[in-house]
Amino acid sequence: MSRRLGMENRENHWERLLWLKQDYPDNYSDPAFLKELSEFHQQQLLPHSPSSYNSIVRDFLLFYHRVLNASSIYVIFSLIYYYDYNPLQIAIGTSLLGTLGLVTSRYRFVRLKSSLIIVFTLLNLSPLLKSLSRTTSSDSIWTLSCWLTAFYVLSIALETTNIISTNLLVCNAAVLASRLKTTTEVFCFLLICIEINILLPKLERYFFSKELYAYYAVLFLGDHIVLYSFVAMSLGVPYMLSLALFSLVFITVLPRYFMRWQRLYYRGGALLSKWDAKVPIFN
């Protein structure tokens, strides 16, 4: 009797917090829960608008771009390792472009002190990295590098912060560097990798967030030109064309499937995660 009176008189809303002493019975179910559940079901049955399709395509495009960037490590490595390009020229070229990009964006991603520290660390460690895994066979190195790349792709797909992806990428570069012949090559290779895979994405993200789509398109095209021309040069035009086709399918067709999957099979999302059982966090 008294409880019922209390329920009528109470002013505080029910909250999903265990540590809060609330004037509700233990088996109380909030009306908001049932309401939100029915709304969620209604929403799932609705056809999706084209605007959501566009946003998904954009996300796919960004991911595709990151993967493309990541594969540029192998482009650089092959150019130095197989085609005996002068790494110094490439390094100077990318550094100049990078500086130019930084100046255009007037955005200080990296402070001068940091960049100096990075450069000197690389200079110091290049001889060590060159001899580090000399005795390990090349096959093991390729396998290791392949796995690291897989983890890298996985980490950029899942991770919101880019700490682990950055680390995996540097690790991959360091592993590959031990196959190069001279210390200069090692140093240049690491420098180029860091510039292309760490500075360039930052720059791109900056352009994207400031809606400077023209600059972004230039960078995007530049990436594509380098990569596709490399594929054409090393493997031949048919490979290049099939790669382009595959990319096109990935960007345009796969989002449709994704939407279909999300509508029909996806369980989870904001509502359920809000009402699901949770593990208490101590400390």
């Binding site: 060590l128 950055t166 540097v170 360091a174 592993v175 860091i194």
Partner: peptide, 10 residues
């Protein structure tokens, strides 16, 4: 990050 990772690899 870069220094740490390089040392870790080493």
């Amino acid at each position: 990050l870069l220094m740490g990772t390089l040392f870790f690899t080493v």
